[in-house]
Nucleic acid binder design. Structure first.
Length: 911
RNA sequence: CGUCCUUUAGCGCAGUUGGUAGCGCAUUCCCAUGACAUGGGAGGGGUCAUAGGUUCGAGUCCUAUAAGGACGACCA
């Protein structure tokens, strides 16, 4: 037999399009299915529609990056919601996009240029930006290709890039508007500065880490005396920028010195001794050197005491001309040299090990320097007021709720946002500086003259905006705002505010909060109703994935190995409200196995439906025409619960509950029992019985793939295409609910549920005796079922075939107990219905095993009885507990005692 | 230092009005039975972090403690 190399499917099976291979092969299905969906336009949403809207804007990934497992998780959740809502009759719109990621992208391109020994400055701004665009065009499609691989059902026609014209217009409009309200201003302030980037960065881009360093004690000579003042510092090199030393006003040690001056060693500058309550008398020597241009606290002191600000650093964070002989040195070298020189002068006192937290640039990992510079800022205090209110009032809901506290806390301590970056890749700030009157013209459309003096000697601001500025406008800039075309207006009317924002907790401040701030300002409405926060993906030990640790996993390796559906399902089945997700390949394998189970269950069902013709009424059921078996009625009753609970769980964002329910229903009910129960019917001779079972089987399959589709779209669409009962496509078929599936679900039956429960318990009891006694499945057993209730007699007689087949029996007598000598006996009780399972063991087994089994059962029952006895003999329990709780316990007690007696009796029969 | 989260079977986690602890994987035993060994069947395994408290009754409510984590503030 020859095989097809790629799929391992025997070629004779490929010849028949309806035959499924015995293993699900994702690579064979995924790409083809995705292309078909896309070509058929199933992902498209309508700007105008009678359907209720449901919209999600994708958090735009870095345009030149790769998708990692975190994205895969993020997208899976969104696609689940979109597909579920689309199938539930919503006008579901998922808008994809990519981000220009200013610093990240610029850095990558600069690195590339460095390989050719070119710097961006050598190229010049225009040429460099061109290069970045080239880069973007080369890699910009990669992200979207990867998203298709995940199965993301986005409306691709709406895909937006943060530097698109429309978005740029939105950026300019918001900038100008905020500038006119004085919410955006330019000013000289102390900002976080990254040397390698030669740019300011925002507070959020600084990562603080505890770092081992030293506390240096240095003497400053007090002028006019021979006294020495000892200051303590972790940063001796900044003494070059000192413009004061400070003590606490109440410090008795230094009272007489306040107002005098000291001389800064090495540069011999005379600076004042000032007093401020900011100083902690108990810390260090109680004397602080003040460097207002290079420390945030010193900056404040410098402002209140009107000190001089001396900048000692260049843009690259090397010492500048104010550092005298130290000019040109990097900070660590300067520190070393200065300490050596202080030692030579005899002014160095001592050094002590000291832990302190140092800010590192989140992009380059360089130490961040506080630096005095001219930057653009957005004032936050006023914007924050409504942004707080919408979360407090519940207009925006965080899931899990605890994140709203984190959000509100940040809003309460919010500082002005430094929005300018000294980069070239991004939205260039729409401000023009006039060389004549030195004022700014800020305008949406490039001006030709200064609006203040009319001079034409104007030049545009070199800086670009922080990437997150355009991201903050994303919920409405992607919908066409501020364009007033009919299309744009309709889009916004239909889809704004969006329904969900799905993202990780790492960007709540960077992005979520800022979208709320600016959406309220410009759209006068919240950007989204619910913020679903998921955890970050970590490795199986809980360690953050990173390339340098070598523990990062490429989602597409996983997809190639296990299929996109398995990856998606493993995310969804283990997603627990906002907790970090510990990724395990072993678990993924488990869900790959589940996909295979779904595949094979369907394969079996379809092979038994070859002579089945779909009814003209489709998925509707006409009860009077169908003579269902008890098995059918039972599985349909179970389906009712599943449809109800899965929709409920999705509604409440309990995705893992929904996934788990489907997993267990399909594997442990449908495959393990329903298929096994119905095998005798499908291979039997009763044509009417068979026809009814085929119909129910076909209807069940149809429901199963529809219910499962949002979780694992590829395999379900593939199976759907082979179903006898179906519509155009699974992706646009209806999501089953107890309302829209009423007529079929009406075939379910509670009594049948009970009957099958009894039958299942009896079969399990037989299997238990067989298993514990290690009786080979090859041996067919003789069983007597002892019964003293007519209705139970009826149930078991009616299901004798099932008992015989699944119990692997050669003989099954239903009726009286009969002779119990050397028999295994097991009693089961299902809501009052009692069955005694009796199996003669003579000649089959070593009785010791059976005695052990019985003793084990007795022990367990006795434990139950003692627990129940303790409760029921407690007067206070009987007096206080609910009646039905007591009644239930009493019944349990009686049953357990009864069973113990029966077990003890059977024990004697082996002696 | 502050805020928040977590602590339940070997591992990963459920457990929403307090009423004899569940799921998946792993593990043990048996199995080639016409959908599936990526499978079937039967088992074993937990004093629910600790200490108090409320209650007839606490994994669940309250208080304190411990450990781990996230975020934020300060650090001369």
């Amino acid at each position: 037999m020859t095989t097809n190399d790629e799929t391992n499917i025997p070629t004779d099976k490929l010849a028949n399009p309806n035959a499924l291979s015995d293993r699900y092969n994702p690579t064979d299905v995924e790409e083809r299915t995705y292309q078909w969906w896309e070509k058929s336009g199933y992902f498209k949403a309508q700007d105008k529609s009678t359907k209720p809207p449901f919209s999600i804007i994708l958090p735009p990934p870095n345009v030149t990056g790769f998708l990692h497992l975190g994205h895969a998780l993020d997208h899976t959740i969104q696609d689940l919601l979109i597909r579920w809502k689309r199938m539930s009759g919503f006008n579901a719109m998922w808008l994809p996009g990519t981000d220009h990621a200013g610093i990240a992208t610029q850095t990558v391109v600069e690195k590339e240029l460095k390989k050719q020994d070119i710097t961006r400055h050598q190229l010049g701004r225009e040429k460099f930006v061109e290069k970045v665009w080239d880069w973007k065009h080369q890699y910009g499609d990669r992200i979207y290709k990867q998203m298709r691989g995940l199965g993301d059902s986005c409306d691709w026609d709406r895909a937006t890039f943060t530097l698109d014209d429309g978005v740029s217009k939105a950026v300019r409009k918001t900038f100008v508007s905020l500038y006119k309200k004085n919410t955006i201003y330019k000013g000289q302030k102390l900002v976080n500065w990254s040397g390698p980037l030669e740019s300011a960065i925002s507070d959020l881009e600084v990562e603080h880490q505890q770092t081992k360093s030293f506390m240096y004690h240095i003497n400053y000579p007090v002028d006019g005396t021979d006294q020495l003042l000892t200051i303590a510092t972790t940063r001796p090199e900044t003494l070059l920028g000192d413009t004061a030393v400070c003590v606490h006003p109440d410090d008795v040690r230094y009272q007489n010195l306040i107002g005098k001056t000291v001389t800064v060693p090495l540069i011999n500058r005379k600076i004042k001794i000032i007093a401020d309550t900011y100083v902690d008398q108990a810390f260090g020597s109680g004397v602080v050197k003040i460097t207002p241009a290079h420390d945030f606290n010193d900056y404040k002191i410098g402002k209140t005491h009107k000190l001089e600000f001396i900048n000692i650093l260049t843009k690259k964070c090397e010492l500048n001309e104010n550092a005298g002989t130290y000019q040109g040195l990097k900070i660590p070298e300067a520190r070393k040299r200065i300490l050596e020189d202080l030692k030579k002068l005899g002014l160095f006192v001592k050094e002590e090990p000291h832990m302190n937290s140092i800010g590192y640039c989140s992009r380059t990992n360089a130490v961040v320097e506080p630096m005095l510079s001219d930057q653009w800022f957005m004032k936050m205090d006023q914007l924050a007021i409504p942004a707080k209110r919408v979360v407090e009032s519940g207009t925006i809901r965080f899931e899990p709720e605890s994140w709203s506290k984190v959000y509100l806390h940040w809003m309460n301590i919010i500082e002005d946002w430094c929005i300018s970056r000294q980069l070239w890749w991004g939205h260039r700030i729409p401000a023009w500086y006039c060389a004549d009157c030195e004022k700014h013209t800020v305008a949406e459309i490039d001006p030709t003259a200064c609006e203040h003096c009319g001079s034409s000697k104007i030049s545009q601001e070199d800086d670009v905006l922080d990437t997150w500025f355009s991201s903050a406008l994303w919920p409405f800039s992607t919908m066409g705002w501020p364009n007033e075309s009919e299309h744009s207006i309709e889009t916004q009317k239909t889809f704004y505010p969006t329904s969900y924002l799905v993202t990780g907790h790492d960007i709540i401040f960077f992005w979520v909060a800022r979208m709320v701030l600016l959406s309220l300002e410009f759209k006068k409405d919240v950007p989204f109703r619910t913020v679903y926060i998921h955890g970050l993906v970590r490795d199986s030990k809980g360690i953050k994935m990173s390339k340098s640790l070598g523990n990062s996993i490429d989602p597409f390796d996983m997809i190639n190995k296990y299929g996109a559906d398995a990856l998606r399902f493993s995310f969804l089945a283990h997603l627990f409200s906002g907790k970090d997700f510990k990724f395990s390949e072993q678990r993924l394998e488990g869900y790959r196995n589940f996909m295979n189970k779904v595949w094979n269950g369907s394969r079996f069902a379809l092979s038994n439906l070859q002579d089945f013709k779909a009814p003209p009424e489709g998925t509707k059921a006409l009860p009077e025409k169908v003579h269902t078996s008890v098995f059918d009625q039972w599985i349909i009753a179970k389906l009712y619960d599943v449809e109800k609970q899965v929709n409920n769980a999705l509604e409440k964002e309990k995705f893992s509950d929904a996934a788990t329910m489907l997993y267990q229903f399909i594997w442990n009910q449908f495959c393990d029992w329903y298929i096994e129960f119905t095998k005798p019917i499908l291979t039997g001779s009763d044509a009417n019985e068979k026809k009814a079972t085929q119909l129910v089987m076909a209807q069940m399959l149809n429901r199963i793939v529809r219910l499962l589709h949002p979780f694992c779209p590829f395999i379900t669409e593939e199976i759907y295409s082979k179903l006898p009962i179906k519509n155009e496509a699974c992706i646009i078929d209806q999501y089953p609910t107890i309302e829209n599936d009423k007529s079929f679900l009406a075939l379910g039956n509670k009594q049948a549920e009970h009957e099958i429960d009894v039958v299942k318990e009896v079969i399990t009891a037989i299997r238990n005796i067989r298993g514990e006694n290690r009786i080979s499945p090859a041996i067919k057993l003789s069983v007597r079922l002892g019964i003293d209730q007519d209705n139970v007699q009826k149930i078991l007689s009616g299901n004798k075939t099932a008992l015989m087949t699944l119990g692997r029996l050669e003989k099954c007598d239903i009726g009286l107990d009969g002779d119990l000598m050397k028999c295994a006996v097991s009693t089961i009780v299902v809501s009052g219905d009692k069955v005694k399972i009796i199996i003669p063991l003579e000649g089959l087994v070593d009785f010791n095993e059976e005695i052990k089994r019985i003793q084990k059962t007795i022990e367990k029952l006795e434990k139950d009885v003692s627990v129940l006895n303790a409760k029921l003999s407690n007067e206070k329990f009987v007096a206080n507990a609910d009646e039905d709780v007591i009644a239930n316990d009493r019944i349990l007690m009686a049953q357990s005692k009864d069973q113990i007696i029966s077990m003890q009796e059977s024990l004697t029969r082996f002696q």
